[in-house]
């Protein structure tokens, strides 16, 4: 047993109301569990998720932010997920340019029936953020 205090990341999981949340419902129906340090955050559509929310989370305490919505072509609002992809691409580009760990933001599509995929994604992202370590931005008092 190691004495070191294990780093438990603080992760926000942005889920769209149709597919992402649906995926978590399916996971629940199958009794699949995802890490408890991941906090689901429901939005009507990933296209409605302004990257400002992601920034706010990263500045105010999150170590990572992951977004899941309908697969391309499946969006309940037709093109909301394409909008989300463009916005997240811009956000990741900004974070990348400024050296702010763009890898702390993930976008992965999860369909309504893909409970296993949602849980897998949650675990994978959790491991990924654990490897990255705590987000330096969240503890900065001059932000």
């Amino acid at each position: 047993m190691s004495d070191e205090k294990e780093f438990i990341p603080n992760i926000v999981y942005g889920l769209c109301a149709w597919c992402g949340t649906g995926g978590s419902e399916t996971a629940a129906a199958h009794h699949l569990k995802y890490p408890e340090n991941i906090k689901p955050f429901r939005v009507m559509c990933t296209g409605a998720l302004d990257p400002v929310y992601i920034l706010r989370a990263l500045i105010e305490g999150a170590d990572g932010f992951i977004v899941s919505g309908c697969h391309p072509g499946d969006c309940h609002y037709d093109s909301g997920n394409y909008r989300a992809r463009r916005r997240i691409a811009a956000l990741k580009s900004i974070l990348n340019t400024l050296g702010l760990d763009s890898d702390r933001v993930w976008l992965r599509w999860v369909g309504h029936g893909e409970g296993q995929r949602l849980v897998d994604t949650a675990f994978e992202f959790n491991e990924h953020i654990k490897k990255l370590g705590p987000n330096p931005l969240k503890s900065r008092r001059d932000s």
């Binding site: 992951i66 992809r85 990741k92 976008l107 599509w109 994604t121 491991e127």
Partner: peptide, 10 residues
């Protein structure tokens, strides 16, 4: 810019 799903997580 997407994180691609590769495998089932252990």
């Amino acid at each position: 810019y997407e994180a691609h799903y590769t495998k089932r997580h252990q």
